[in-house]
């Protein structure tokens, strides 16, 4: 067998790059041929964005670029220069989770959790656009994301539950508040 391998070096040379990542302005020097996924993980500190396949098949690396879901492993970082990027770390409002996050946790939408960041950003974009999607609309939105644990059913359940929270206008509580009543049996006595 003959191996055909191209030299990996020298690099394409560094270029300046600026973008808003989860609301924080980042000014970085990146390799000119850098992939957005690598920049986000290695330079912008978004380790929540996952690398699953490097070829756009699994959807784990999905982020929102100017509100639209994009596969960051197939996106040159330069394409996102100046954009507003939202990763899974940018969904929550402080300690108040986004309803889609809360419901993925509560309804079994996340098992091993590796594909979860991709699903979450896709579903948050869906709910942004369409707060009460039908099951078919949910399925079409997540068709580019692979999940090996859940069989998708509880993911669809989670999106439906999040949609109910969003349309009802209820928020998600502060995750730092005590989970169980600190004075059991005390209230109302």
């Amino acid at each position: 067998m003959v191996q055909h391998r191209l030299p990996m070096l020298p690099s394409a040379g560094e270029v300046p790059w600026a973008a808003s990542v989860n609301g924080v302005e980042k000014q970085l020097n990146i390799e000119g041929n850098a992939i957005l996924l690598d920049v986000l993980r290695d330079q912008a500190g978004s380790l929540g964005t996952k690398r699953g396949c490097d070829m756009g098949t699994c959807g784990c690396c999905t982020v929102l670029v100017d509100g639209q879901p994009r596969l960051s492993c197939l996106t040159l970082a330069a394409e996102a220069d100046g954009a507003e990027i939202t990763t899974v770390e940018g969904l929550a409002d402080g300690h108040h989770l986004h309803p889609i996050q809360e419901m993925f946790a509560e309804c079994g939408g996340s098992q091993c959790g590796f594909c979860t960041p991709g699903f979450l950003v896709v579903c948050s974009a869906l709910l942004e656009e369409n707060p009460s999607p039908s099951d078919d609309e949910i399925k079409c939105a997540i068709e580019g994301n692979l999940c090996r644990c859940t069989g998708y059913q509880q993911i669809v359940d989670s999106v439906r539950a999040a949609s109910e929270i969003l349309t009802s206008g209820r928020g998600v509580g502060d995750s730092t508040a005590p989970k169980s009543d600190p004075h059991p049996g005390f209230a109302g006595e």
Binding site: E89, L97, A105, G108, Q111, G113, T116, P117
Partner: peptide
């Protein structure tokens, strides 16, 4: 809900 699920949904796992 899984006890570690909130780590997973915030990308902090």
């Amino acid at each position: 809900a899984l006890v570690d699920s909130r780590w997973k949904v915030t990308g902090q796992a």
